[in-house]
């Protein structure tokens, strides 16, 4: 990934910015520039909750190059409250194993460093949902 790529990805990666087609009411994450359903180019930027549940997970013992520094680690597929599904790493599990159906929320974390003194890429990961006051 290049520095320019990183800059372009700030909105979706830092605050889960999605796009919504106001003609057909469809919500897209990752964001799109054209609605593939109706061809509308005027898509509205919307922020999504970042809260959802874990659909499936796996523990990676043999990671790709960029993530060897953090292995072993868990990854999963998360379904957000808005119905969007996305992939991500799981953090802050402590000694616990993740469970399917577990409630999770977005956590802003390091992805991987580039080179010895290069830029460190950051973005969303998911952690078990912290208790809120209503709970």
């Amino acid at each position: 990934m290049s520095i320019a790529d990183y800059w372009r990805l700030e909105a979706p990666r830092f605050r889960l910015e999605a796009t919504k087609c106001e003609k057909c009411e469809k919500l897209y994450f990752p964001p799109k520039v054209v609605c593939p359903q109706c061809g509308n180019k005027e898509l509205k930027k919307v922020e999504i909750s970042g809260k959802g549940k874990l659909i499936s997970f796996s523990r990676i013992d043999k990671p790709a190059d960029e993530h060897t520094y953090v292995a072993p680690y868990y990854v999963g597929i998360i379904e957000l409250e808005e119905g969007i599904r996305l992939s991500g790493s799981l953090v802050d599990l402590g000694d616990k194993e993740p469970e399917e159906g577990m409630k999770v929320e977005i956590a802003f974390r390091k992805y991987y460093p580039v080179g010895d003194e290069g830029v460190i890429y950051y973005g969303y990961k998911f952690r078990p949902l912290l208790m809120s006051l209503e709970d």
């Binding site: 953090v70 992939s87 991500g88």
Partner: peptide
């Protein structure tokens, strides 16, 4: 090295920006 191979296989075959960058591998 296997990590380098996993990286190439991931970036070529998966969604680089929304799967591989996050740490997911094709095996996972």
């Amino acid at each position: 090295k296997l990590p380098k191979l996993q990286s190439i296989v991931g970036y070529v075959n998966m969604d680089s920006r929304y799967e591989v960058d996050m740490g997911l591998t094709l095996a996972s």
